[in-house]
Design a protein around this nucleic acid. Sequence first.
DNA 1: CGAGCTTTTGAACGCAGTCAACAATTGTGG
DNA 2: CCACAATTGTTGACTGCGTTCAAAAGCTCG
Lengths: 243, 243
Amino acid sequence: MSTFPTSPNTLMIRGLESIFTLSEEEKQALQDLPVQVKTLEAGQDIVRLGDRPSRCCLILEGFTCVYKLTSEGKRQIMALNVPGDIPDLQSLHLKVMDNSIAAISPCTVGFIQHEALRNVCERYPRITAAFWRETLVDAAIFREWLLSIGQRTAYARTAHLFCEILIRLKVVGLVENDTFDLPMTQIELANTIGTSPIHMNRILQALRADGLIQTQKKQVIIPDWEKLKKAGDFDPHYLHLEV
Amino acid sequence: MSTFPTSPNTLMIRGLESIFTLSEEEKQALQDLPVQVKTLEAGQDIVRLGDRPSRCCLILEGFTCVYKLTSEGKRQIMALNVPGDIPDLQSLHLKVMDNSIAAISPCTVGFIQHEALRNVCERYPRITAAFWRETLVDAAIFREWLLSIGQRTAYARTAHLFCEILIRLKVVGLVENDTFDLPMTQIELANTIGTSPIHMNRILQALRADGLIQTQKKQVIIPDWEKLKKAGDFDPHYLHLEV
DNA sequence: CGAGCTTTTGAACGCAGTCAACAATTGTGG
DNA sequence: CCACAATTGTTGACTGCGTTCAAAAGCTCG
């Protein structure tokens, strides 16, 4: 586990300039945040329900997910995280984790101490606002997922999910020619959509047959964006990408 | 529509002292917020998806809900709001509403201009933190609802919902002898649970038959809290009522 | 190259949705 | 205060989406 700043990389944090263009000083303060970098294997938990973390976790590479289990052991994934996300930013104000976070693919994450984040927020209220906003966007995504899981068929839900992933990966430059890597098993997709793995398998077959997605290995190609959007009843407003 | 401060009431806002005990000055700043009070009939929208509000809405009396519609017109309620809640606090940082909010019962709400809220937040960072935290608790509730709707049976989901409502109403003093008013139709309950009204009707019959709830008019009695908790797989941690 | 996970297929079952009709309640205007 | 309209709640029957169980085939990786 190495400690930044030692690498030439600059920290990419989702949406920090959605409201304001940050000043050089503000940007510098963010880049000066001490970050502990760690690599994780697929499947490893990063934080667990019940934990009282003293740091947040910034995704640098790979995919993670937010999940919870019922007492019967059924698993629901309630968020996917891509590079630039801070899936446990909530822990800055909610002392006890009410969900777990796990690596879906092998990934590298950067840990930032709460104390350091609080210092930056104290000094730069606009950074506070930007972080706050990011947690609000996460909540907006939860709302859309609730609509999806509550009111749409599993088929539409899955199309909707692929739409969202495409857009969010585009933002961080991980889409080329409508193609992206999606290192998720069908079991994980099923846990996200709220259906059984067997049914998820059949949904994917249907989506392929209908020409909405193509898959090879863990790559997904979206051959017809408009058709996929329509099938998923997808409207990107809830992602709040533009102001 | 009258304008506070004209009434003797003090503003009750959910969870503002969860992190810090506020100073007299901070409390006063909150009480001095200009509030436009309005009464609403059941069913009326307060804000709508697509709106760009310039104010937030504090529930003073009655119940409201956050909801969205699919393009087919199916309705999902993704949050219930009780007195003390600010269901659109998000609009402080997300310019365009990604959901609608409607009165479930006749209710009185207080509108507070964004500008006034921003001023208070600028001056008192701990109030910023407290408001931010409230939006994080809302997000935690969304996560639990996602788990519920994705992985629990409609019967368990409904039991879980009654558990949550009981707890949240207790906090604001609206429960007496395990009894509370719930001015929701079965259609609205169905829209919350993500099921059909007919099925909701049968679930309620089952819950009554199993001795988990008693209903008379729009009153609900919880005769056996432990049994209801168990049926709903309910663990109140996600409400973050204690630190 | 074999163990373990993931994907795929088939078949039976069941939870929940839909349709239709009726009863009960609430609200409204005469 | 009553009659009528509209909404809400209840019941029955049928349908279907999605689950579960079981088993085989395909990958991946030590």
